[in-house]
Nucleic acid binder design. Sequence first.
DNA 1: GATGAATGAGTGTTCATTCAT
DNA 2: TATGAATGAACACTCATTCAT
Lengths: 189, 189, 189, 189
Amino acid sequence: MDVGFQRASLRRIVSEAGYTLGAFYGYYNSKEELFNALVEPAAKGILTSLTEMAEILNGLPDEEKLAKMTDVFTAYMPRLVDFLMDNRDETYLLLECAGGTRYENFLSGMMEQNLLFMTQASGKAELPLEPLAQKLLVRSYFSTLGQAVLEGDDREEIMRTINDIQSVFTDGMVHILQKNREKDGKKGQ
Amino acid sequence: MDVGFQRASLRRIVSEAGYTLGAFYGYYNSKEELFNALVEPAAKGILTSLTEMAEILNGLPDEEKLAKMTDVFTAYMPRLVDFLMDNRDETYLLLECAGGTRYENFLSGMMEQNLLFMTQASGKAELPLEPLAQKLLVRSYFSTLGQAVLEGDDREEIMRTINDIQSVFTDGMVHILQKNREKDGKKGQ
Amino acid sequence: MDVGFQRASLRRIVSEAGYTLGAFYGYYNSKEELFNALVEPAAKGILTSLTEMAEILNGLPDEEKLAKMTDVFTAYMPRLVDFLMDNRDETYLLLECAGGTRYENFLSGMMEQNLLFMTQASGKAELPLEPLAQKLLVRSYFSTLGQAVLEGDDREEIMRTINDIQSVFTDGMVHILQKNREKDGKKGQ
Amino acid sequence: MDVGFQRASLRRIVSEAGYTLGAFYGYYNSKEELFNALVEPAAKGILTSLTEMAEILNGLPDEEKLAKMTDVFTAYMPRLVDFLMDNRDETYLLLECAGGTRYENFLSGMMEQNLLFMTQASGKAELPLEPLAQKLLVRSYFSTLGQAVLEGDDREEIMRTINDIQSVFTDGMVHILQKNREKDGKKGQ
DNA sequence: GATGAATGAGTGTTCATTCAT
DNA sequence: TATGAATGAACACTCATTCAT
């Protein structure tokens, strides 16, 4: 399962799992169905986690949204990371092998729907980033978290890594925000 | 060339380029050789750019390395971006279609070789990031820049986007550094 | 059982009949054996009916054979039709799904054996039809009767339909015979 | 090509024709496309012939339609038979191997559309046949003609056979008609 | 050198048949 | 006996590669 799912022949996948082709089709109706069955629980779990976070943030007054984002992430991320670690193989499939499946743009799509609307809702003046940069950074942030889970050796390393990644992204964004306020302040004089 | 290179049939690739299958094999010995030939100049160009940057940084005294990193990037990035934009198709192939080829981990590999050695050379105390986080962030930084080139509509948008991305990453890293120095300062008292 | 027997998977056939695959092979040794077992009673019944008719006709003096044919058919057909209707599914299998089995040419073969010998035995002068035409007409006659049973909605409709079909075929044949006799009569003068 | 087209493996069809599977797909896009390509000209030719006949009959006053049917058939049939004989293999495919293809009910369908409307247009009182009997007889008539072409050895035999078949069917129908008129006559007194 | 018809091993999928339970 | 998971050969179809022209 390390060269992508589509490109691996079903014969190989199945025989590496110790089955034969015929046996496989007793369990699944197609190669695609297997992929979806493997990946769906992980996808649902991630979706649920992120939806919860988004709902909490949406419940806050607009002006607090950005400030609390780090706190909310810090609170929820360990749970999500534990989930991803418990479903490492599936997370791998979802993040690395989904090309050509319905999960092809799972992360991108979800990020754009669930999170961009959130940051934009926090007031245009607040996040003075190029829209494309926002999109790419959010995608990159989550994709990097996923990589950390996939490449880390143990929970401790992964958690420290994720803390660092989160610090870099959120501090980086906050800093941009401050620079911008200073600029606005000077303009406003 | 927009559905992946491996999955596109050679017949299609070749005939969309206005050639015939037979002619193709006069020039290349295999599909893979074509891919490498297409991608090699872009890969070399990127490699050269990054090596230059690394060399300049390496020429600096250790304590200045991190501080100057932003400046060096700011100075060199436009050149690299212009190069990527001039070789957009090849960049696309390199970043999005390299699965299963020798360029599969081009970015990851290069980042780890060229840049991690650099940041690590800058002294452990300076970049108090988990090594995995460093690796992932550098990889993510360059990969995001690549995405900006691929998804941006025009040079202006791409440049603004790249500036934002760079700000977030470098400000984020600098901020971590400062937090750490303060911690060290208190410890050192 | 309405898409052909060969093309239906044994799994489907067996499970629609309320059995399991394993149980099936306790009763039959192969799919083909099942087909034969299903179809054999119907085939035998039809064969018996037609043999009876042939024997009666054969017991008549040659010059009466043709004249009585209609009477004999009229007498026996209802019995045969009832039999076919009582074994509609099997008749369907026999007539429509026998391709590739030993019953492939059941009707054709039987007609040619049982009935052509009869009409030919009735004296060449009597049935001045091209031999191929005889063969095809007899085959067509019985095949059309079978279709009537398969496509008719109820016994009444089927019986009326069969009467019409029989009229057309026998009247048609008798008419040819008369034409021929007139010709012979003129010749003989 | 004698066990049906669908059931014959493409490998076998193709290799019996002296080609390989790969070569085949240079000419046709699918097994079905091959079947259609083989059969289409024959189907079109037959359709054209029958449409011409139907148009001529439709141009006649209603009361003459039935009476002239034999003449029209006698005039047109030789041409159709020659066509079928020139396309014997294709006719065979069309009549015997079309199960599961778009030509599955070619004859039945055409007969019902082109000819039943004609006989019905000739006045309900005229053809006092059970509708199912009409349908089956017309289908049977044409199918038997087709069989004659497929099974006959030479043009002479086929033509004589077809004449006989036509005599039986048309005389049979005319006879039914007369019987009915007599009945009507008595009723009408 | 250029062509594209031909090759043949590969793909995902089906299904009659077997066999340990 | 009955089960249904497992088998493996078969299917239609694809495609990188070769080669006679």
